[in-house]
């Protein structure tokens, strides 16, 4: 085998390294014990039984969050912004002559079951609100909103813009819904609404 010339760089370096067999430092052994103890402790406290779809180490309570008193955790303000504010306006003042106000309205803060009936089936025909006559059409929401959602949006409306009536529970909306189960047309103006039980 022919040997290539030894380069000066190769000549000047130290020999290849090797290892001495000094014993393991005590401190390293101690560290090993501490770490194993930590591992056992950590595993024994681990939550490995929650379904993994919830996300690692998350509890049911964290996922459910805080429950508002009424409205069963549904965000009434969000529903109002999405479904009602187009007509009644974000301020709840309506548009004079076209859409009646909800702020200070006797229908809103009045009988809870009547308010629920209005949102469930809508109104068409003359109605007087805060002394002003209106004659338009309010759409029905029975099909698009559930009981809890109607309860939440009404509770929201009843507590805004100076209104301060009690929140409406979902059960009340459910009762009103079954009371008018056969109905397929809007209520006929303020007169019919005033006669509701």
């Amino acid at each position: 085998m022919n040997t290539p010339d030894v380069l000066p760089q190769q000549r000047r370096e130290n020999p290849d390294p090797q290892e001495r067999s000094t014993p393991m430092p005590r401190l390293v052994l101690l560290l090993a014990l501490v770490l194993v103890a930590f591992g056992i402790d950590y595993i024994s406290h681990a939550d490995v039984n929650s379904p993994s779809a919830w996300g690692d180490a998350r509890t049911r309570a964290e996922l459910v969050g805080d429950r508002p008193a009424a409205g069963q955790g549904v965000d009434g303000a969000a529903i109002y912004a999405a479904m009602c504010s187009g007509c009644h306006q974000a301020s709840g003042q309506g548009l004079p002559g076209v859409f009646p106000p909800l702020a200070g309205s006797e229908w809103v803060v009045g009988k809870a079951s009547t308010a629920a009936a209005i949102v469930l089936h809508g109104v068409s025909g003359p109605i007087e609100v805060k002394g002003q006559p209106f004659n338009g059409t309010m759409p029905a929401f029975a099909a698009s909103l559930g009981d809890a959602e109607i309860a939440a949006v009404l509770s929201h409306v009843r507590s805004q813009w100076g209104n301060s009536a009690a929140p409406i529970p979902a059960e009340l909306v459910a009762n009103t819904r079954s009371l008018h189960a056969d109905r397929s047309t809007p209520f006929n103006g303020g007169d019919e609404l005033a006669q509701l039980p």
Partner: peptide, 14 residues
């Protein structure tokens, strides 16, 4: 590292 300083590695066990 041991090459440059010219000393063997301290411990095979480690």
């Amino acid at each position: 590292l041991p090459k440059v300083i010219g000393r063997p590695i301290q411990s095979y066990n480690l």
